[in-house]
């Protein structure tokens, strides 16, 4: 596990951007943290690293939003799938041509691939965040080694 302490929103976004630049098709990321921890900020950084031009905003209503970038970005909020067995075609996303980022991933544990990058954001105070990045594959581990603030 790799731990980073970011001093503000900009630094959080920069760390995410570095990850975004290194991601490859079929990479799956889980992104967890409390309300206001900065999940949206982090995803905006990732999107920047993937060269997505459009505004990345909340996928809550439709559960998934797709963005065109260097490779596609699939942004999911699976909060509403709590207590549900529904498979909204996860494999098509996970095995598709892009990168999948999942918020509230605990609700779809049974669908998640083993090889994934687990990201947890914790609020230290108003500005600072502790970001834990746990890679569950060799390629993702290599990616993490190169990260620096």
């Amino acid at each position: 596990m790799y731990k980073f302490t970011t001093i503000n929103e900009n630094e959080t976004q920069r760390l995410a951007k570095q990850i975004g630049e290194k991601l490859m098709p079929n990479d799956v990321l889980t992104l967890d943290g409390d309300l206001g921890a900065g999940k949206t900020t982090f995803t905006k950084g990732l999107a920047e690293g993937l060269a997505v031009k459009r505004t990345v905003n909340s996928p809550t209503y439709t559960i998934v939003k797709e963005y065109k970038g260097r490779i596609p970005l699939y942004h999911m909020d699976v909060y509403r799938l709590e207590d549900s067995e529904e498979d909204i075609g996860f494999d098509d996303y996970f095995n598709g041509e892009g990168v999948t980022v999942i918020e509230w991933s605990q609700y779809i544990l049974e669908f998640l691939p083993e090889e994934r990058l687990q990201i947890n954001i914790e609020k230290i105070d108003e500005e600072r965040r502790e970001i834990k990045v746990t890679p569950h594959s060799d390629h993702l581990n290599e990616l993490c080694k190169e990260l620096k603030l």
Binding site: S58, T60, Y61
Partner: peptide, 25 residues
């Protein structure tokens, strides 16, 4: 519930998004 957008139209069927939410709708 899913959208907050300002859309400019000069003619039928032509939509230009000039503003949208950066996070939640």
């Amino acid at each position: 519930g899913g959208h907050t957008e300002l859309i400019y139209m000069e003619e039928h069927g032509e939509y230009e998004i000039i503003g949208e939410t950066r996070d939640d709708a």
